[in-house]
Simulated assay, not measured.
Amino acid sequence: MFWKLPALGKISKIGIRPPQAAPGRSGVAIALIVKNEARHVAEWAAFHLAAGVRQFLVYDNGSSDGTIDILRETLPADALIVVPWRQIFSDARMGREIHNQVLAYAHAASNFGGDLRWMAFIDADEFLVPKQAASIPEALGHLGDARNLSLPWHMFGRSGHVEPPEGGVVRNYLRRARDPMSDVRGVRAFKCIVDPCHLTALRVHSMETDGSGRTCNDRGVVVEERERDKPGFYSADHLQLNHYYTRSESELAAKIGRGPNLAAKMGEYERKVRRTVANIEADEAEDRAALDYLERIGPECVGAARTGG
């Protein structure tokens, strides 16, 4: 009798040795991987610079549309680190692909985390929005010595746009899935902000600090990782994570055309994406949190950030 070996999945969790904390470390960094984000990346970078992000750790997965040039024009030179990151690695013995985004996150934490209090791991279609404070560091200040924060996605759909509208993402996309904790077909997920000097293992959507998966919400309520899916964990009182999943229909079609990060999943990708969009837009609510934040800090702050002034 011959036994068929199960299909081997990707290596999507990486363990690391946390960096040593530097004296007086402070501030918030964002680590992200990009590929051809030229249309919206200036808005994204200017928003987060105005919101107090100290360091942008950008892993460039072969951008060819000027994404990196735009980032260099938008951000101060001392706030931006660009790392070439166009690669596919695998375990040579087992043939398992190593998730390139997780690998970038591990590299960012290991090599740059020692100088920082917080490191966020998000994408260029995700915005960290302070709800009460004037900046992201202030929005995190009440958490004390917390080391692992999980923020739920607030999933935004097309808001009726077929083509990209003038005026940017924040001002034009104001409708999201009503329930951020819905578990219907991919609407719910989390991204993490952690103390990199205590980070010991990571995936794209979950991280471990000091060998534990315990995490907190933005109010500081701590739970085991498996408990964060429960509705009672939800909070966006201090910091909200907006995920502009589709933007316009034409951009959504282009996203589907580019395919998934892992080539093996190409066949199911369009069906999954369209199903997620349908669930986002099946029950929507208006959400002006990001726009309200811009109006609260004043357009001159974002304008100064955009020009590096």
Results as ranks from 00 to 15, higher is better:
Val221Gly: 04
Val187Gln: 10
Glu166Thr: 14
Ala124Thr: 12
Ile122His: 07
Gly160His: 10
Gly157Met: 14
Gly298Asp: 01
Val277Glu: 04
Gly24Thr: 00
Leu149Arg: 03
Glu138Arg: 06
Ser235His: 05
Asp65Tyr: 14
Ile70Glu: 15
Thr67Met: 14
Tyr105Ala: 02
Thr246Pro: 07
Arg86Gly: 08
Lys4Ser: 05
Arg226Phe: 05
His198Ala: 01
Ile16Pro: 04
Ser90Asn: 03
Thr74Gly: 03
Glu166Val: 13
Phe47Met: 05
Arg271Ala: 02
Ala133Gln: 13
Leu199Tyr: 09
Tyr105Val: 01
Ile14Ala: 09
Asp292Arg: 01
Gln240Ala: 07
Ala177Met: 01
Glu270Gln: 08
Arg185Tyr: 09
Asp237Tyr: 12
Glu224Val: 00
Ala264His: 13
Ser12Gly: 06
Pro299Glu: 04
Gly15Pro: 05
Lys131Trp: 11
Phe2Lys: 14
Pro299Asp: 13
Ala264Cys: 15
Ile98Thr: 03
Val170Leu: 08
Asn100Tyr: 15
His142Ala: 13
Asp125Val: 07
Gly309Cys: 15
Ala31Val: 12
Gln240Asn: 08
Asp65Thr: 12
Pro196Gln: 02
Ala263His: 13
Glu97Ala: 13
His99Ile: 07
Asn217Arg: 09
Gly144Lys: 12
Asp123Arg: 02
Arg219Met: 15
Val184Gly: 05
Glu281Gln: 08
Phe112Gln: 03
Cys197Leu: 00
Phe56Leu: 02
Asp237Asn: 07
Ser212His: 03
Met266Ser: 07
His48Arg: 02
Gly62Ile: 10
Ala290Ile: 01
Gly211Arg: 12
Ser206Arg: 03
Ser135Cys: 09
Glu163Trp: 14
Gln55Gly: 01
Glu300Lys: 08
Gly259Cys: 05
Asp292Leu: 09
Ala254Gln: 02
Pro152Lys: 00
Gly141Lys: 14
Leu116Trp: 08
His243Met: 14
Pro130Thr: 06
Gly15His: 07
Thr67Asn: 11
Leu103Tyr: 12
Ala120Gly: 15
Leu239Glu: 11
Lys131Asp: 15
Ser26Leu: 06
Glu225Gln: 11
Glu284Gln: 14
Leu57Ile: 03
Thr276Met: 10
Phe47Gly: 09
Asp78Lys: 09
Gln240Cys: 14
Ala289Tyr: 06
Ser63Val: 05
Arg178Met: 11
Tyr244Met: 04
Gly211Glu: 11
His238Met: 04
Gly141Val: 01
Gly308Ala: 11
Ala79Asn: 11
Ala50Gln: 07
Ala51Arg: 02
Arg25Thr: 00
Ala45Cys: 01
Thr215His: 08
Glu295Ser: 09
Glu224Ile: 00
